[in-house]
Simulated scan of single mutants.
Amino acid sequence: MMKITYQLPDIKEVAKTIISQAGNKVLLFYGEMGAGKTTLIKEIAKQLLVEDVTSSPTFSIINEYRTHSGESLYHFDFYRINDENEVYQFGAEEYLDSGNWCFVEWPEKVENLLPLDAHAIRISINHDGTRSLEMK
């Protein structure tokens, strides 16, 4: 398990650390609304040399980006999912099993679909405004 406390100016180094520590490319981001999940995902994508503008796929559920080398990266936001069957319908398992980077926000909405070897990243806001991150 990895634990980090950080502020926004540290996010580039946090992203690099996550990339270097990830043995699996499926990263599950847990945290309350406003904890900084999307901000961290944007920085990880930037460090992976994504050329596209990244944004939260809240309404589209999934966004696909391309890295400089042409690799696909998938960013899921399951906040608006009410039933796991919705996710089955668009083939989320194929994305998650693709071997490409997959960043999943609100994974607790689709627990039964997630790979067992995915990394769970929990972000919480501290009283002083810093963020605490645990990666398992």
Rank of each mutant, 00 (worst) to 15 (best):
T5K: 12
N85A: 08
Y74S: 03
H68V: 12
Y95S: 09
Y74W: 06
Y74V: 05
N126M: 15
H68L: 15
N82P: 04
I61C: 05
E51A: 15
K3A: 11
M33P: 03
G36V: 05
T130H: 08
F90R: 05
G34C: 12
H75D: 09
K136T: 12
H119G: 03
R80G: 09
G34P: 04
E84Y: 13
L96H: 04
C102T: 03
G129D: 15
G70I: 13
V53M: 07
Q47F: 02
N63L: 08
M135N: 04
I18S: 00
L27W: 01
L116D: 14
R80H: 09
A22V: 01
G70H: 12
S69L: 13
F103Y: 00
E111W: 05
N24I: 10
I121T: 01
Y79K: 06
E105T: 05
G99A: 08
Q7N: 14
A15W: 02
V50R: 00
I18V: 03
T130K: 08
A120I: 11
T5R: 13
S69H: 08
F76P: 01
R80E: 07
L96Y: 05
I121M: 03
S132I: 10
A120L: 11
F29Y: 05
D52G: 15
N100P: 01
I121L: 13
G70A: 13
M33N: 06
E108H: 13
R66Y: 14
T39R: 07
D77V: 10
R131W: 03
L116A: 15
Q89P: 00
V53F: 11
P107D: 07
L113P: 00
T67H: 04
I4V: 15
A15F: 01
S60E: 06
L113N: 02
M33Q: 14
W106C: 10
E93N: 13
L96D: 04
Y74R: 02
D10V: 11
D117Q: 14
W106K: 06
M135I: 11
E86H: 06
R122G: 03
D10P: 07
G31Y: 02
L114R: 06
I62A: 03
L48I: 01
A35C: 09
